[in-house]
């Protein structure tokens, strides 16, 4: 069950303010990193919704993000529709794709669910990879950013874009947190805990699981829009299963089922990657070993572990007072 604790709110605000300051004072390179963090954070939050709360470990979220990015690309760069409605439609397409995959795979659990989402994600990847109209493996360019010139905001500058990406992180977090502490999120946790019993007390778990994938897909769709607008170019690599795998790593490193953990994980992951790549080409091995160590240490992740210590200390304090 999700609780938006004060600690989580403080960490959220602190992290976003820190990233904003980094973007403001850190120059162009810092802003690129902040956008990269934002995309990964939203994708990780969207995976946490299904994996952390619903127990559905999805390997198709990269593909869902890609469906959004490509829909946005088709509508704007190919068909010339304006950016804002196109983005809304693209996020909708991601939500629909998520719902459909969720509905078809809703009867599978465990490793079968993982494999089934892998299959659908790879299908989307292959279709786009093979499509000459969509540019195949060359990708597609010319995706516009939003035009906020009327408000005096130049979105083609790196700083406004980085701050816009951070704003979307905040929105996605709030949306996810809100939905996870609503009836919808409670039901999802119940399904994770004991799906047959949820059916026995009257929940159509298949429909609910599909809805959860749809909501999660919506969030992943937002990440897709930022990814498309960021370098204004997209390639099928966005949809490949390892993108989902990497985002799942971020969720685990940060703390599964905490929503804020995945965000912390995204910050740590991107910074670690760029820091390490300054010293060595071989950051993969570090990430791999850290991941293995995290899982073996109980799988709570960075934020989850801290929260675990805090509740244990509180419990011990209460026991001493009693």
């Amino acid at each position: 069950m999700f609780h938006q604790t004060p600690t989580r709110s403080i960490v959220l605000v602190f992290a976003l303010v820190a990233l904003a300051l980094y973007a403001i004072y850190g120059g162009y390179f810092a802003r690129e990193i902040v956008v990269e963090i934002a995309i990964l954070a939203i994708l990780a939050i969207s995976i946490d919704v299904v994996a952390g709360f619903g127990g559905m470990v999805s390997l198709c979220h990269g593909a869902i993000m890609g469906v959004s990015a490509y829909t946005y690309g088709i509508l704007t760069a190919k068909l010339g529709y304006p950016a804002l409605p196109s983005a809304v439609a693209a996020i909708g397409a991601a939500a629909v794709f998520g719902t459909v995959v969720g509905w078809i795979t809703a009867r599978t659990t465990g490793i079968y669910f993982i494999m089934a989402t892998l299959a659908f994600g790879q299908m989307a990847y292959t279709v786009i990879f093979k499509s000459r109209w969509l540019g195949g493996d060359d990708g597609m360019g010319g995706l516009p950013r939003f035009d906020f010139d009327w408000a005096g905001i130049a979105m083609n500058k790196s700083l406004p874009f980085a701050l816009y990406a951070l704003l979307l992180v905040l929105l996605c977090y709030v949306a996810a947190a809100w939905v996870m502490r609503s009836a919808f999120g409670r039901t999802l946790c119940g399904i994770h805990s004991n799906e047959p019993r949820m059916r026995a007390i009257g929940v159509s778990t298949i429909i609910h699981r599909a809805r959860a994938m749809g909501f999660s897909g919506l969030l992943a769709g937002v990440a897709g829009i930022i990814a498309g607008q960021h370098i204004q170019y997209i390639s099928p690599e966005l949809l490949f299963w390892t993108v989902s795998g990497e985002a799942l790593i971020v969720v685990i490193l940060g703390g599964l089922g905490t929503l804020i953990g995945p965000m912390i994980g995204a910050i740590a992951f991107v910074l670690l990657k760029h820091e390490l790549s300054g010293y060595t080409d071989h950051w993969h091995i570090v990430v791999g070993l850290v991941l293995i160590a995290t899982v073996l240490a109980g799988g709570r992740g960075l934020y989850g572990q801290i929260e675990h210590w805090m509740t244990r200390r509180k419990a011990r304090g209460a026991a001493q007072n009693a």
Binding site: S182, A183, G190, N194, M198
Partner: peptide, 29 residues
Amino acid sequence: NLFEDLTVRENLTLAAAAAQGKIAWLVKD
């Protein structure tokens, strides 16, 4: 056949909410 990782209250609440059809509100808890 319980929700093993939850509390007694949460177990009962899931059942009550499900029976009253209060399972898919996006905003209300």
